[in-house]
């Protein structure tokens, strides 16, 4: 364990809490992409199957359970909660996210640490997480005004994987750990946030509304 990784996991947890707070307090999921949330549920389920096969860990296990529970809760709210589901921007959330699932599955089939069910699914979840934010970013571009909580949510989500990159750099030098699959996927994932980060920081500096071109 190192500070980068701890900060990264806390940032990830914070992003999910921000989203839950937004949905619960405003009773609205305007500006949130249900497709991205669906993909996250898929990411967590396919990644945390090892909850049943590997020894539990005091640190990882609670996080895995919280990530699974919160991501499923968010999708439940957006699909079935009578008030919240009315506020979902169905017609703007148009990204064909199914086109993301198949390439990730094929890639996982060929590129994985070991050709077993758990490892292929784990690789699938790593690749899928890298692109899962795309529907959300596309939805933000079509949103006229992005509310602060949504902007903060996406920022934290991008920041957590950027912190993981620092964690991997640290572990490479300190613990001689090499992990090609999450490294490359993590780089792609963080790169996808690049323009969002630029506009988010610019709007924060000029103290103006966040607006994506």
């Amino acid at each position: 364990m190192n500070a980068f990784r701890l900060l990264a996991d806390l940032t990830h947890l914070l992003s999910i809490i921000i989203l839950l707070v937004k949905i619960r307090t405003t009773k609205s999921c305007a500006g949130i992409s249900l497709k991205t949330q669906d993909l996250y549920v898929l990411v967590f389920i396919s990644r945390y199957l090892d909850l049943f096969t590997r020894p539990l860990s005091l640190y990882n296990t609670p996080f895995k359970l919280v990530f699974l529970a919160t991501s499923i809760t968010i999708v439940y709210y957006m699909r079935y909660h009578k008030v919240v589901k009315q506020t979902y921007n169905k017609d703007s959330d148009t990204f064909k996210h199914y086109f993301l699932i198949l390439p990730c599955a094929v890639l996982a089939f060929f590129i994985n640490p070991k050709f077993t069910f758990i490892e292929v699914l784990w690789s699938f979840s790593i690749y899928l997480e890298a692109v899962a934010i795309l529907p959300q970013l596309v939805l933000l571009q079509s949103s006229s005004n992005i509310d602060n909580l949504t902007g903060n949510y996406v920022f934290m989500l991008g920041a957590y994987r950027a912190l993981y990159l620092l964690n991997w750099i640290y572990r490479f030098f300190a613990e001689d750990v090499v992990r090609w699959i999450p490294w490359i996927a993590g780089l792609v994932q963080t790169a996808l946030y690049a323009d969002f980060f630029y506009y988010y920081i610019k709007s924060w500096r000029n103290n103006e509304r966040l607006k994506l071109p």
Binding site: D9, H12, N60, P113, W122, Y164, V177, R179, W180, P182
Partner: peptide, 10 residues
């Protein structure tokens, strides 16, 4: 490659 199998991260 060995390390990839040790999923000790979230």
């Amino acid at each position: 490659k060995e390390d990839d199998k040790k999923h000790d991260e979230l």
